[in-house]
């Protein structure tokens, strides 16, 4: 059982957390013209990095989204912060 840190509730069991997506996947401006390729990239493309990753997770009991920094091979968590906070 791994412990994940919620920036709002503190350390909790990993089963309380839900992976929401990679950090930095910004929705294209839909008021302008968007090509099928751009839209497909937004919807589907994943960086899927091996090693250090920055992801958006939800802590389901408090329903807050936050940034989780971890290693995708060792699974070590290296940081956790609220979405509105900038990276240190």
């Amino acid at each position: 059982m791994q412990i994940f840190p919620c920036p709002f509730c503190g350390d909790r069991n990993e089963t309380e957390f839900h992976f929401a997506g990679e950090l930095g996947n910004v929705r294209p401006d839909t008021t302008g013209d968007i090509s099928a390729a751009e839209w497909s990239t937004y919807l589907f493309t994943q960086r899927n990095e091996k090693g250090a990753v920055h992801e958006v997770w939800m802590h389901t009991p408090c329903a807050e989204l936050f940034v989780l920094e971890r290693d995708s091979v060792s699974m070590e968590v290296t940081g956790s912060r609220a979405l509105r906070e900038t990276a240190k």
Partner: peptide, 13 residues
């Protein structure tokens, strides 16, 4: 599993 990963091993949950 619920967590994206490259770690070739199992886990408890």
């Amino acid at each position: 599993d619920r967590v994206p990963s490259y770690g070739q091993r199992g886990n408890m949950p």
